[in-house]
Each structure stands twice: as structure tokens, then as C-alpha cells.
Simulated scan of single mutants.
Amino acid sequence: MNKTAFFDSLTEQKPDPLLELIAKFAADPRPGKIDLGVGVYRDETGRTPVMKAVKAAEHHLWETQQSKSYIGPEGDPVFLRTLASEVFGERRGGKPVAGIQTPGGTGALRLAAELLALDKRRKIWIGTPTWVNHQAIFASVGLQIATYRFFDIEKQTVLVDEMLTTLRNAAPGDAVLLQTSCHNPTGAALSQQNWRDIADIIAAKGLIPLFDNAYQGLGRGRVEDAAGMIDVIETVAEAMVAVSCSKSFSLYRERTGAAYLFGDRQASLNKAIGNLASYARTSYSMPPAHGAAIVAATLEDPSLHRTWVDELSEMRTRIVEIRLAAAEAFGQFRPELANIGSQEGMFSLLPISPENVRQLRSEHGIYMPDSGRINVAGMRVRDIASVAERIGPYLT
């Protein structure tokens, strides 16, 4: 009998660094250890709670849901309609919109990447540093990736001029990846004028913007966080948006998201959605239904919607409080880190070497990725000063 050695012939893959970090933190027996790595919101007790609105929506579904049958590759139409209304509001420049439900924001990015990769000449421009999975997603479909510097870690500032110059030099038909708000991993925010300049260049050059909208409501507010994205959508011919419900609804494990397309003609959008549905069918076939049903129930019910808005506001207020305290504490070691207070969302990027990150981990039980990205929501307000005192001497 012939024996195969197919599995033995495979190339061993490196484990995901963040997943490795989770395992190392869990195995650390020290009581004072601090997790600044995992990208989930935590309250002052260190928990990632289920939102009250979500619990109430789940109870409603338990009482009223009558089937667990498939929902189809396109997903739940009520979810898509209510989420679009919440994310984009009324400001769309009169543009038609079409959407498809996806397994989280990552699934939406992957479907968008598949569509963009149909043109083998196209590049997608990505500002660096960026979320660690961005480049891997686009590379996996054969899309050409080009990068530019977006953020100066030492000065803690956005490199707006470099960004705009890069976009001016991009080829017509190229795509550009833009994070709507609460930039991961830097927390850096663009001004409204920056967004207008970006919109004008994208429109003039005939570029295709792809927005990663993962943290809406955790920066300046639900409407404010989307304002720059809406400026671009109103200005350009076509746009793509990947929406995640993981953070704003705290639905991490439900893998709830959507991809939305904007254009001038509904018929063209419907054709594009048909292509996305085809990719979905050969990948995961149908999206998971439970999280989408929760979001739809929450957004459709005025009382649950108010409860959710209040909870999201509380989360945002806590993040702002942490940022202001962290800006003061870390700014004593590096004046530039006072900018943490004007950044937004859960993440900031510290100027620290991978060697010093590992030393912090072994000597002080403070866990963060080698990049120096910290989840500010992983800190309790009362611990910020002591955390900064331990990290400060390791900053480069």
C-alpha cells in the first residue's frame, strides 16, 4: 500500500503573534499581570460585558424566532437596511447603496478584496502602520499592495502630506484603504479638512476608496466618526465599505458584519453584490445569522436603540477618560505621548522596541504586541500611573 506524505510536505506556518500573546498571558501566574494586547473593549473591572441592549434583543429573539433555516448568501435584509441607516444616516449624496452580510468586518474586507482583484493591474494603497491582517487579506487574493507612511511613531503625528502626495501619484482605478475612525493601531485622527482633501484627490484621480469601518461610535461619536467617510462617499463615483459590529455592539464572537457598495446606478450595484454573493457561496456559503438578528432587533426597537446608544456612549466616555489620564502619565516620559489624549478609539502605538516589549513582559507582566500597540481600554483608570511608571523607562 502506498503511503502519502502530503501533510508532512506542508510548510509550517508561524502562529499569529496576537494569538500567541493571549496564550502567554493566560499561562502567566502573576496576579499583577496586565493585558494591553487583545483588541477588545474592557470595562473598569477588566471584563468585556454583554451589552444590556444585546441581552434584551437576544431575549426577544428567544421568544419570537421561529426558524434556524438558512438566510441566504446575501444575508438578513432587515439587518442590512437598519445597519446602513445607522452607519451612514441620511448623508449619502443621493447615491444608491447595496449591501451583503458577512462574517465580521474581516469577511467584508475579504469579499471586497476579491472584487478588486478582478483587475490584475490594480494596486491597493495602504498607509502604514496598519492592522496586522490588512496586508495578508489583500495579498491572499493576489491584489498588488503598495504602501505609504501614515503615522510617525516617534512624533505621534499623522503624515498627512505624505498621504496626499501618494494618492495624487496613484494610477486611475487603484484602490485606497481608509480606516473610518479610531485608527488601528495608532489611534490617530484625521481632521475634517484632511478628509475633504482626500475626497477631492480620490475623485480627481478616479480611485476606489475601501473603508474599514470597525469602531464607529468609540471615537468622537456615532455621527462624528462617520463624517469623513461620508464626505468621501458624497464626492467620489464609487465606494466600498466594510462594517464590523464586533466593537460597537460588543459582538466579537458572533462574527457580524457587512460590505456596502455605493455608486451612481442601482443596477450596477446589484451586479457587484451578485459577484460578492458568488464569492461568499464558494467560501463560507451563508453568513452566521444570530449576531445580525441581534443588531436588527436592537436598531429596529426605539427603546433598545436608546439603551444601546447610551451604552456605547458610556464606553466612549471611559476610553476618553483613560486617554486623558494616560496622556498625562506617559507624557512625563515622552512629551510626544501627550498626543494620546487627542487620539481616539482603543489603540495607541508606543515608541518601544520589540526587545523592550519582551523585557516588559518577562520582568513586569505587561503584555503587548512587539509593535508596541496598546489597547488603552485594557487599563483601569486607577492603574494608569503605575503602568506608565513601569513602561516609561523602556520607551525608545
Rank of each mutant, 00 (worst) to 15 (best):
E63V: 08
M229Q: 13
V176D: 10
C245N: 06
I352M: 10
R323Q: 10
R149M: 09
V381P: 01
L349S: 08
L159D: 11
A272K: 13
D231L: 10
R265P: 01
A23P: 01
D383V: 01
E314A: 15
D16W: 00
A338Q: 12
L118E: 15
D152C: 05
G72V: 03
M315N: 09
N133Q: 13
S191V: 06
T130K: 01
S283D: 15
V54Q: 08
V376W: 00
P129G: 09
G263R: 03
N184P: 02
V141K: 07
V160W: 06
I100L: 15
L251I: 06
I100R: 06
D35W: 00
G221T: 04
A237Q: 12
R306I: 04
C182W: 00
E311G: 04
E44P: 01
E344A: 12
G331I: 01
Q156I: 03
S69N: 10
L159M: 14
L337R: 00
Y215C: 12
Y284H: 01
T147G: 00
A377T: 15
I366C: 07
A5R: 03
R110A: 15
V78W: 02
R334V: 13
S362D: 15
S246K: 05
A237C: 05
A98S: 14
M240D: 02
A53D: 01
I340Y: 02
I273S: 07
A227V: 06
A239Y: 04
Y260T: 02
A113Y: 02
V158C: 06
P354F: 05
D212W: 00
D161Y: 00
Q179R: 09
D231C: 04
M368T: 05
Y367W: 09
T48E: 14
I71A: 13
W62G: 07
Y252M: 09
F333L: 00
R110S: 14
K247C: 02
S386A: 15
E344S: 09
Y252S: 09
E74F: 01
A146P: 00
P29M: 07
H59S: 14
L218A: 12
F333K: 02
T102M: 10
Y367C: 06
P96Q: 08
E63Y: 01
E74Y: 03
S268G: 13
A98Q: 11
I208D: 05
Y252L: 12
K55E: 15
S9T: 12
A139M: 04
I124V: 13
G257M: 06
Y41V: 05
M315C: 14
T396E: 13
D119C: 04
